[in-house]
């Protein structure tokens, strides 16, 4: 049984401009102990999908359909109280911007201890010392002294470590990291990625990393899911996808990133803009920008098909050929 199994997830936002289908039929699967990377452009539904796993979609957003099985239980069917136990207990989450994701008026120790008090039902003092331990685990120097400090007294990288300490304080089986390094300096980014890798090895937890940076995904992830316009374009083994992408969008995405395309060549861009999710696109969502689109692509919506073990993609004319 997989740790997390998302099936046919649909999340809609009722806005004044119209209905936004932010997530439109997403399937994902994650085995325990593995790292899944979710890549895609801004607004492609990566974060909304993960917030749905936490059931933290705020109105006007709503989860319309689908199931999210975590350790075999459908999170969408849980009561509020049961869901609170999952949040921070079974699943921890790290957010993108450590500058705004920590409460400025509470000390970092209090904020970590708060998570522990909820899930471990221990005394204040015990929770505090566990919070200090969590800070030590993410390599914050002088953790015991610094637990009483406030977020503004830490650098960006240290704050992200604190966010991670908060998320892993209760030893979750799954850690969701939403663009954990985007707001950080490049040198600090590498440190945070290493930290996540170490923590995974230590605690045997699974990680989902949301990123728009394919290099981050390449460094960290076993598996990869490529999102576009609220759907999964391609998913499977990260190494295979990056070395031999099958979906035209994955190919285009890879070619637009320095370091993946061969050196000396001009970087390629993807023509056009990501679609407005209010308008319904007939056929494949990528066909208006697809360099290899066929005439039928505008009529028929491709179904996700499995091409090899664990590898699947949603394109009728993918580059891998029939296997």
């Amino acid at each position: 049984m997989s740790l997390l199994h998302i099936n046919g997830l649909q999340v809609h936002f009722q806005t004044e401009a119209g209905l936004v289908r932010a997530v439109d039929g997403v399937d994902l699967e994650l085995e325990s102990g593995r790292t899944l990377g979710i890549v895609g452009e801004s607004g492609c539904g990566k974060s909304v999908t993960m917030l749905s796993v936490m059931r933290l979609i705020q109105p006007p957003g709503r989860i319309m359909a689908g199931s999210i099985l975590f350790e075999g239980r459908d999170l969408l069917a849980l009561s509020r109280e049961e869901m609170r136990q999952v949040r921070g207990g079974g699943i921890g989450m790290v957010f993108q911007d450590p500058m705004t994701s920590l409460n400025p008026v509470l000390s970092v120790g209090e904020q970590i201890a708060e998570a522990i008090e909820i899930h471990k039902r221990t005394s204040r003092r015990r929770a505090w010392s566990m919070a200090v331990e969590a800070m030590e685990r993410v390599s914050i120097p002088d953790a015991a002294d610094r637990a009483g400090d406030y977020p503004h007294q830490f650098s960006g990288g240290m704050r992200q470590r604190i966010m991670i300490a908060m998320a892993i304080a209760c030893k979750p089986r799954l850690l969701i990291a939403d663009e954990p390094t985007t707001a950080l300096d490049v040198t600090v980014q590498a440190q945070i990625l290493n930290l996540l890798r170490d923590l995974q090895a230590e605690n045997k937890m699974s990680i989902i990393v949301i990123t728009h940076d394919l290099r981050v995904a390449a460094q960290l992830c076993h598996d990869l899911a490529v999102f576009y316009a609220g759907r999964v374009m391609e998913r499977g083994n990260a190494e295979q996808i990056l070395s031999n992408p099958g979906h035209p969008y994955t190919i285009a995405l890879r070619n637009s990133i320095p370091g993946f395309s061969s050196s000396g060549e001009r970087l390629q861009t993807i023509g056009g803009n990501p679609p407005n999710l209010i308008d319904k696109i007939s056929g494949c969502v990528f066909h208006p920008r697809c360099p290899t689109a066929h005439s039928s692509c505008s009529d028929l919506s491709p179904v996700e098909r499995f091409v090899s073990d664990g590898r699947s993609l949603a394109c009728d004319y993918h580059a891998l050929g029939e296997m």
Partner: peptide, 26 residues
């Protein structure tokens, strides 16, 4: 609407704590 209130909810705090401790405190 702030990120730290979402982050607090992601820790599993109750709605009361999210509103009074985290949001109102700020």
């Amino acid at each position: 609407r702030s990120d730290y209130v979402t982050a607090a909810r992601a820790k599993g705090v109750s709605e009361r704590v999210a509103v009074y401790r985290h949001a109102f405190g700020n």
